[in-house]
Each structure stands twice: as structure tokens, then as C-alpha cells.
């Protein structure tokens, strides 16, 4: 029989933060704080990243995760939280953004010791 808790825990991103912290890993937390238009993940959605780039959760349909992870490494390094802004992507210019036409603001912070 399937362990239903295994499914439920996939959504418990903060639970992952706790587990990673217990293992002594560095952790950055990215949170969607505002959305405009048809952004794929609602306010409060989270992506957490550890020092090796392991990630759990999401802040978009996958379009901006790469850029968020890059910033997460910066935040883990200097400890300064950042507010990131992602608009509509321009495919011609290879911009990072949301192909769906939405806009999001993502807050990235480090879990302090």
C-alpha cells in the first residue's frame, strides 16, 4: 500500500528546510510574494535550495527557477536577502521570464544559524 505521507510531504517545503538544517546544510528560501497576470504559482509558493544546488518546491512552472537558484547561491554567500522581479520573457532576447505573460516578485533569504 502506498505511503500517503510520502506524497503529502512533497508539498511540505518548510519541512525540507528543517531536515536540511538538521543535517547542517546551508539553506536559501525563495518565496513568491506578489504575482500579476497568469503566473503559475500563487503567493506563498516556495523553492528551497541547499549549498549543493539541491532544490525542493517551485516558484514558477520552471521558467525562472534557474535564475532564482543562481541568486540563492549569492544570498547564501553574503547573507543579504534580495527581492527579485521577473516579467514576461522575450524569447528573442533569451531573457529569463515567464512565457505565460505573468509577472512575479520573489523574495530570497538565507536561513541564519
Amino acid at each position: 500500500m502506498t505511503d500517503i505521507n510520502a506524497f503529502a510531504s512533497q508539498d511540505d517545503v518548510l519541512g525540507t528546510v528543517g531536515a536540511w538544517r538538521a543535517e547542517g546544510r546551508k539553506v536559501a528560501i525563495a518565496t513568491v510574494v506578489k504575482t500579476w497576470g497568469s503566473s503559475p504559482r500563487p503567493v506563498g509558493s516556495r523553492l528551497v535550495v541547499d549549498g549543493d544546488g539541491a532544490m525542493v518546491g517551485s516558484v514558477s512552472g520552471g521558467c525562472i527557477e534557474g535564475a532564482v537558484i543562481k541568486q540563492a547561491f549569492e544570498v547564501m554567500a553574503d547573507g543579504k536577502p534580495r527581492l527579485l522581479d521577473f516579467g514576461v520573457s522575450d524569447e528573442q532576447a533569451w531573457d529569463v521570464g515567464l512565457a505565460c505573460g505573468g509577472k512575479v516578485e520573489v523574495w530570497v533569504e538565507r536561513l541564519e544559524d
Binding site: L14, V17, R21, I29, V33, W107, E109, R110, L111, E112
Partner: peptide
């Protein structure tokens, strides 16, 4: 996020106590 605040938030969540985390952006 400070570890102590994170622990308090996790304790509230597991006790099913509503809590709002407010962050100055």
C-alpha cells in the same frame, strides 16, 4: 530567516496553530 523564528514557525505549524510570518521586503 533566523533559526529561532523558523523553529517557532515549525512548532506552530505542527501544533496546527495559525501564524502569519511578516517580512520587511
Amino acid at each position: 530567516m533566523k533559526a529561532a523564528l523558523f523553529e517557532t514557525l515549525q512548532a506552530a505549524r505542527s501544533a496546527k496553530r495559525p501564524a502569519a510570518l511578516v517580512t520587511a521586503l
